[in-house]
Design a protein around this nucleic acid. Sequence first.
RNA 1: GCUGCCGUAGCUCAGGGGUAGAGCACUCCCUUGGUAAGGGAGAGGUCGGAGGUUCAAUUCCUCUCGGCAGCACCA
Length: 648
Amino acid sequence: MSEISITLPDGNSRNYPAGVTGMDVAKDISTSLAKKAISCSVNGEHRDLSRVIESDAEFAIHTMQDDAQALELIRHDCAHVMARAVQELWPDVKVTIGPVINNGWYYDFDRAEPFTPEDLATIEKKMREIINKKDMVRTETWDRARAIKFYEDNNEPYKVELVNMIPEGEDLRMYWHGDWQDLCRGPHLVHTAQIPGDSFKLMSVAGAYWRGDSNNAMLQRIYGVAFKNKNDLKAHLHMLEQAALRDHRKLGREMDLFHMQEEAPGQVFWHPNGWRIYTTLQDYMRRKQTAGGYVEVNTPQVVDRKLWEASGHWEKYQENMFIVEVDEDHAREKAVNALKPMNCPCHVQIFNQGLKSYRDLPLRMAEFGSCNRYEPSGALHGIMRVRGFTQDDGHIFCSEDQIEEETKVYIEFLSEIYRDLGFENFRVKFSDRPETRSGSDEVWDKAEQALLSATRAAGIEPEMNPGEGAFYGPKLEFVLTDAIGRDWQCGTHQVDFVLPERLDASYIGQDGAKHRPVMLHRATLGSFERFIGILIESHAGKLPFWLAPRQVVVASIVSDANDYAQKVVDDLRASGVRAETDVRNEKINYKVREHSLAKVPVILAVGMKEVEQGSVSVRRLGQKQTSVDAFETVKLGLAKEAIAPDLA
RNA sequence: GCUGCCGUAGCUCAGGGGUAGAGCACUCCCUUGGUAAGGGAGAGGUCGGAGGUUCAAUUCCUCUCGGCAGCACCA
């Protein structure tokens, strides 16, 4: 047997016979290390300690101190232990897959009966029993035929399918946690008792399609979270509770911003407070767009199907469109229309009016375009995913040569706006060509390169989203995150080669001939609805002063100060501050509590002292201390604070 | 759209085969109080909708609408 050289992280090497296991090496280094060891890295690959090492390698032992590895193993072993628990409790349940995800894991099961919350408690208990058995984790490499036979004999059809999906020639690894066995890539812990029994929790059960395909059977997915210790678990559960308090649906009600109701699912009834946020944001965007060289337009809501047929929406998007058929009694001629789900075809209609010259390009056309999409009922979510919404939409008509420059300009435009709105960090996803697409590979090459280099020129390294582009062109997505960590696409920037062709847009080039423009679809906020939802959640309702619907409440302490309170409010309003009085027959404690809960940024309390000296007592949201200052000074300060960041 | 769960007063929720309850909010009265709930009284509900079972349904069953979580979708 030949010798191999194992190089440890401290740079020292040791020689071992080929076929030594990670655990052998750990024991050789020290017995106490071997006891603590949970896994190892071999040439950077995370592996089981029980796996043999065949050739020279860079080698490191991992213990519970190594967070990344420890958490991956704990969560992965939890998945296996949970699947084992489920099959011990209900032997007829079929197992499928169970990967590690953020904060935990899930495992998908096929079972006729639904899992109940009580079942989750039972499973958790069973998991703790299994952990306490301290079963060693064993692994073997099998060939396909043996694995298929095994799973066929055990009536595990999903596993058979999984084995068949694994490419020919790749090792099949089998893991045992005690008697229970699963096909798995690994790695795993040394024994199950390395899972901290008090640091995991089963969270929920929900449906999930087998292999993520809605044509397949619906399985039951159990989600769990797991950490290294009880405190981390508690901290995580606490974080979830805090996040729930930031939910825009809850805050929207509490702050009286909007409501939704059964008669208009997926559509927003904006209340005065919410609409003030909306219009403030819209005014801001209009100024930014004007400054950014856009011309603003407005286009029809209800458009004949002929246009949608021409644009391709009728064929590709009809399921998501509200179709409007006009009754013959009411119309001279029966017409089939659709509410516009997007603004782009209408914008091309405007572009197509009159003859365009290359000198007109790039033409940046913007619309606060109200769209209606018949979104699947299960997709609706508060005001973040709705059926009626308004995009800060825009289409840039340009030549192919201008794509890169226009993209650069746009990323700068968007970054400035996101910064103003408090989003210093946002993620950019880049989606390239999908399998079914229009346009030649040469054009795609060019467009993808243009987007990528423009993004990198802005100092942003995009996340790759291979094959996820639209059929008509590649795209950039600008992603923000909600209170509980769900990603939402807000901004978008997409290249489109197809629509100008379909709707026959053209311009006269320098050469005097007709050319096809390229369209760049872009939206910065995405939709006002979604963006305001994100804004509410990211600020936990405490919007920056300039966006706050009610900026100041002037609360009287005694009724003799009511007239003064009104005068203060009138003055503030004249200075451009959104102020209201609260002269109700309530104590100041009551008023302070109520307006603080309503997240009003500034409360000005006025009593007889303030009346006499022309002052106000200033209390800022979230601060306990107050200060009494001359009203004129306070007014100037607040008036300045109320100015939008682009005007400041 | 799919799977599961949920739908009782404006809000948060309790209840449960014999036609409903709490706290907060609301209205009125008392109280003029100095920075996160002063006191009292009152009003408020065809228990999401439609069928069915039953002497009797808000409660049990079916369907339907809406919401929530996840999946799928997201031009």
